[in-house]
């Protein structure tokens, strides 16, 4: 009988699921990892809920790092940030297949394997969005000098964005707010960054604060710069939409 392990949508949850899958000692094609609840239950299948366990997750993470190397580990982490229900299954099967390879170090290159390909695609999906957001994020200055930014990404990329901005603005107090997931990335001046969630009771409502005096001036200046720099003879709306998708524009001052 097929066994479905239902995991929480987090690195810890899915890694614990993979650990439990190995504990069952059943053939890999009979065990599946499922992220979140399933709407259509299968009749001849067993379902088991998995509670995230940091100790087990760490063991899986260590194995991945040792067998497949750091590059593959980072790919898996980025794939885990992607919004896709089949990510747990793809990562589990990729690991299972990879451990039996002659040269597990080269696992991410084996794109002819459908699971590796899936992980590769998810890695690319969230990796690209992270990269785009490093450019497309817009901070607004509040009256107390804090820089505040809203994002609504498809993937859970906040933790990948924070190191970039923390290095860039060591002297700034800034907040990046993921509206879709209720996450806040906080960086106090000269200190380390961290993430808090709305579920933990943290709340930050920019409506409680007013923007600084300069904010309107610089956003207007930039908007004007943005329109001036375009060359009339070369206007190209279709290309524009391809390279700067509309879903990012609602958060950008120059499109307001």
């Amino acid at each position: 009988m097929e066994l479905y392990l239902i995991c929480e949508d987090s690195l810890e949850g899915i890694f614990t699921g993979i650990y439990e899958a190995y504990v069952t000692k059943r053939p890999h094609d009979e065990v599946h990892i499922q992220v979140g609840e399933e709407e259509n239950l299968r009749l001849f299948a067993e379902y088991r809920n998995i509670t995230p366990d940091p100790a087990k997750a760490v063991k899986v993470a260590r194995t991945i790092g040792q067998k497949f190397g750091g590059e593959a580990y980072m790919s898996i982490c980025r794939a885990l940030a992607a919004e896709d229900n089949s990510k747990g299954e793809a990562i589990y099967k990729m690991i299972a297949g990879g451990l039996s390879m002659k040269n597990p170090n080269d696992i991410m290159g084996n794109l002819a394997d459908p699971y590796v390909l899936k992980v590769f695609e998810l890695d690319r999906f969230s990796g690209r969005e992270t990269h785009l957001l490093t450019g497309f994020i817009r901070f607004q200055e509040l009256e107390n000098g804090i820089l505040y930014s809203r994002i609504g990404p498809k993937n859970n990329v906040l933790t990948f964005l924070m190191p970039h901005f923390a290095d860039r603005f060591p002297m700034e107090n800034f907040v990046i707010h993921d509206e879709k997931r209720g996450l806040y990335g906080l960086h106090p001046q000269k200190k380390k960054w961290y993430v808090v969630t709305e579920a933990e009771g943290f709340e930050f409502n920019p409506a409680d604060h007013t923007y600084s005096e300069d904010e309107a001036i610089y956003s207007e200046l930039f908007t004007m710069f943005f329109h001036t720099i375009a060359i009339e003879d070369r206007k190209n709306p279709k290309l524009h939409r391809n390279i700067l998708p509309l879903r990012y524009r609602e958060y950008m001052v120059e499109f307001k």
Partner: peptide, 12 residues
């Protein structure tokens, strides 16, 4: 890093 794209499709 591209921060925006102007209407002619060139990166800013």
């Amino acid at each position: 890093i591209c921060h925006s794209f102007s209407a002619d499709g060139r990166c800013i």
